[in-house]
Computed example of a mutant assay.
Amino acid sequence: MAKDTRDKLINSSRILFAQNWYETVSVAEICRHAGLSNGVFYRYFKSKEELFRALIDDFLVCFRQKLETIDGNSLDVRLHSFFIKVYRICFDMAPDVTIFREGQYRFPEYEANLRTLYVEALEKVYKRTVDEAEYLYITAGLRFLNTRALYDEVKFEIKIVERFILKGVFNNESAEELKFLEPGPFDSNLNDNAANRLIHAGIRLFGERGFTSVNVFEIAREADLSVGAFYLYFPSKENFLAKIVSYIGHSVRYYLRNKQVLSHNRLNQELEGMWNFVNYFKEFPEFYEIIREAEFVSREWVKDYYDRFARGYEKNMDDYPEQEQRTMANFLIGLNHYLGIEMVLCERRDDLAEIILRMGEFLSEGIQV
């Protein structure tokens, strides 16, 4: 009986958290969905957070079990098994993946836990230690494409991604005379008017405390304006966040364009772009936090944010098959995205140039099997 009751709470919360943002789901709603009284909830869980964490822990156990079934008598067979399992887990466990992604944002230790599972699996595949660049190159593009396919209808074929990883993207190109420019200058690219003062205030507050913990009055006060002035420019706090997401995307692209050096090959451009991308977010780490939280408020805003980056990539891909351009664009965005998470949010490494150069080898020749 006790197990059945606990299972009802787990199952109902899984449904609700997969469909709704964590902040909008209440204990009362979970109990109502499970057909139980509110008092029953606290016999099994101390809080909504404890229940949410239990769902995340369950997912990680299942994820580990699936990765443990990787097999094969040769390295290439084991790698193929790894790719297929990571690809399928995303779609076979879509509700749990959705919950876990929000858990990663709220509780950063879960990203570290997931990273450990990936590294352990890859070391089983390779039967040796896997370095940082190998881990990122093998997992980042696939993880990002999985997310885009699951939430943004970006379709891709796993065999194309597998080829990018094993054989490279910019075949027969080599990184020569790379120009890793000094970071900056970092121009806000905003005029000093009331709307932009509000945007700057929102970025400061959302970056420090998160979207849900900040109200309109605090934003207006931070900008030295009235609440009425806020609503003169933005109909709601949600619309305000959408404008901030758009501003962040524009600012990043503006910076990358200004830092771009006319390199003689596409590989150089990509590696120099990685350097500039990560250094930009080192200067504005709050941008990363805001974009990640925005995903759970409205995925459409974040979809547009990444779609604009992808279109920028695709403009320079005329030499590649049209059916592969979108996959390639998102694969490369994924490398930048997860490299940034490692360097900016997790601060695990400080050898950015060395890792980028190693990634350049993989982009040119692929992961050697």
Rank of each mutant, 00 (worst) to 15 (best):
Y151H: 14
E270A: 07
T69H: 06
F144A: 06
N336H: 11
F206T: 00
L205R: 03
A121S: 10
M274E: 10
R14F: 02
F287W: 05
I199G: 02
F52P: 00
F331R: 05
E182W: 05
R308W: 08
P235W: 09
M1C: 08
E120N: 14
Y87P: 00
D76A: 12
F211L: 03
K3A: 11
E109Q: 14
H264A: 07
A353C: 04
L75M: 06
V130S: 04
E314H: 05
E120A: 12
Y233P: 01
S47V: 01
T327A: 08
R311I: 08
N316S: 13
E153H: 15
N193T: 11
A112T: 15
D152F: 14
D71P: 03
I290R: 02
L205E: 00
I333W: 00
A229Y: 02
R143F: 11
H264N: 12
M274F: 15
T24K: 13
T5Q: 07
L67I: 08
D318Y: 10
I203M: 09
E153G: 04
D319H: 12
H33F: 11
D304W: 07
V119H: 08
S12M: 07
I99D: 00
D350R: 14
V261K: 07
V302N: 03
F281R: 11
L150Q: 15
S226Q: 07
V154T: 08
S74L: 09
V261C: 03
Y110G: 03
D57H: 09
L142T: 03
K3M: 11
V344D: 00
D57M: 04
F52S: 01
Q19C: 05
D350H: 15
Q65H: 10
L145Q: 01
F277H: 14
F217V: 14
R311T: 09
E132I: 12
H264E: 13
L122N: 02
L267W: 04
R326F: 02
R106G: 04
V119G: 01
E283V: 08
K315C: 10
E120D: 12
E324K: 11
D131G: 05
Y247T: 03
S263R: 12
H33Q: 13
F17H: 06
I341N: 07
S251E: 14
E295Y: 11
G273K: 13
M317H: 06
A112V: 15
V216S: 06
T327Q: 01
K282R: 15
D58L: 07
L79Y: 13
L16P: 02
F281L: 09
G72H: 07
L241G: 03
L117G: 02
F234S: 02
L51W: 02
N38D: 12
L190C: 03
L256S: 05
E182L: 12
C346A: 12
N265F: 08
H80N: 14
K124N: 05
V25A: 04
L16W: 08
N146E: 04
E23D: 13
R64A: 13
D307C: 05
G334L: 01
D304T: 15
P95S: 07
E365V: 11
P183T: 08
I10Q: 02
S364F: 04
V169L: 05
K8N: 03
N38P: 07
L145A: 06
E68I: 01
E283A: 15
V214C: 00
Y313H: 13
K303H: 14
W301N: 09
A133Q: 03
L67M: 14
N276L: 04
D350E: 14
A94T: 09
F107D: 06
E238M: 09
